[in-house]
Structures are given as C-alpha cells and as structure tokens.
C-alpha cells in the first residue's frame, strides 16, 4: 500500500516538476528571442547571451528531463568524454582556421 501511495506521490511530483521545467524553458526562450532583437552595441555579446540562454535550456532538459543529474557514474564518464571530443573537434578546427596565414 505504501508503495502505491509513494508512486502516486512521485507521479504528482513529476507533473509539478515537468510543469515548472516547461515554464522556465518558455520564459528563457522568450528572453532569448528578446535579447536577439535588442539593440545591443556588440554582436558578440548578443551571440554570447543567446548561447547562454540556450545553454540554460539545455541544462534543464538534460539535467531534469533526461535525469542526467541522478544518473550513474558510467553515463557521466561517457558524456564527459563525448563533450571533450566535441570541444576538441570544434576548437581545433577553428584554431586551425584562425591560425592559417592569409595570402
């Protein structure tokens, strides 16, 4: 009996959590669109802000909905390596591009 009631409770908690995650994502997305159209002096700053907002959304989806935060060691190690190699791929490509002497 205890088991059923706790699972009902956890389902209610999940509904609450889902609702709040959606609200935050919606708010952040609207902010992002707002920032993108705001008359900011620096295009680089605008891009940075937009990407930060996207990062917040991504963390919410990955951390909460994909429950990475509660995930096991194995998954963390895997994700850490993947992110590392992704950064290496993009970073080194761009570095190579930037370091190429212009004719």
């Amino acid at each position: 009996m205890n088991d059923t009631s706790s699972s009902v409770n956890s389902y209610r908690a999940a509904v609450c959590q889902g609702r709040s995650v959606l609200l935050i994502i919606a708010a952040v997305t609207l902010c992002m669109v707002g920032v993108a159209h705001a008359p900011l002096p620096d295009a680089g700053l605008r891009t940075a802000l937009v990407l930060v907002a996207a990062g917040v959304n991504a963390i919410l989806v990955a951390g909460r909905l994909m429950h990475v935060l509660q995930e096991r060691h194995v998954i963390f190690v895997l994700l850490a390596f993947t992110v590392l190699f992704f950064v290496a791929l993009m970073g080194l490509c761009l570095w190579a591009h930037g370091d190429t002497p212009k004719p």
Binding site: S7, S10, Y11, A14, V15, G18, V21, V61, R64, L65
Partner: peptide, 14 residues
Amino acid sequence: AVTTFLAWAACKAR
C-alpha cells in the same frame, strides 16, 4: 519533451 517525461513517470506509477 515534458510530456514524454510525464509518460515515463506515469509508467513508473503504473
């Protein structure tokens, strides 16, 4: 994404 999350939560709550 939220509805999928809830679908899974519903499964867990049977």
